[in-house]
Amino acid sequence: MTHDQFEVLSNQAIAICGAAYFVALLLHLAEWAAGRRVPVDAPVAATVGAGAESRPTEAAEAAEVEDHDAAEKMERFGRWGLVATIVAAGVHLVAVVSRGLAADPVRVPWGNMYEFTMTGTLVVVAGYLLMYRRFSLQWLSPVVTGFVLITLMVDVLLLYTPVVPLRDALQSPWLVIHVIAAITATGAFTLGGMASVLYLIKERWLERGGSEASNGYLARLPGLNELDRMAYRTHAFAFPVWTFAALIAGPIWAQAAWGRYWGWDPKEVWAFITWVVYAAYLHARATAGWKGRAAAIIALIGLATLWFNFVGINFFFGSGSQHSYA
């Protein structure tokens, strides 16, 4: 295939995977809609929030058969949603890879915002799929598919750029190392942030009298401790990766390209801010009075600084940053 054909392939693949994510989202919405009729601890749904506390059910005997049907329906939607997501992720991967093959000479597909976003969303999906079984993540499905769908739409509509060669500063093996690490960390922080958002929502809901025994989506989320643990694990994975990307690989590359390890360029400043905020998150989890809610809020502040750096710096600071490749 020629480079041009790969470019077309990449564009088509992005459109197709978008559609597949859309289908997956619809299926997961259907799953949760069906779930409203199923008591939270109906047998089929028992895997939800493994390790969460058992909740006594008062479901009437008579309703049980009906429940069972609804539960089966719910599970079916969920399974198809997962299949659609896996298919979408496969096509997504094709889009990313062919984007790299489309360039002449062939290069890594991380030359501009369009490509970063495309790869970052793939990392989010991959992380979700990898953790799916271990953490029983069906409750995260609508959030992940919805997020990825919207982000990809923004990417295609606002950030699309035809394939061009890499600019000089980007031509370095450190690009590969630095960017892989940065994108991986960004994807993982994003997943962790989703758990933190859900933690806050659920906490509020419980505080306002929400009951674990009801049938809605929130009741089906894992318990607060479980959400917090999942958030922590993801952040604990992402933090060292970010440390490596932003504070080791980045400076080494900057030294090679610009003659300084660290120059307080806006992009660097914000990478540092992100790092400090997430360090604060880890501290908060170990500090009485800051655990739980405050920690979750700090995690989200961290995520905001991360995304601001990813998107905002390029748009607001433009040429003021050596790192602007919008």
């Binding site: 307080w264 806006p266 400043v269 914000w270 540092f272 801010i273 400090v276 905020v277 360090a279 604060a280 501290h283 908060a284 170990a286 500090t287 009075g289 800051w290 600084t305 710096i313 600071f317 003021g320």
Partner: peptide, 25 residues
């Protein structure tokens, strides 16, 4: 720990102006 936490936040906040206002060096 609480002070460390607050100082970390101050550090993050304090770093912001330098990304908005042009820096001499």
């Amino acid at each position: 720990m609480r002070t460390a936490l607050i100082l970390l936040f101050l550090l993050a906040l304090g770093a912001i102006p330098g990304s908005v206002i042009p820096q001499d060096n």
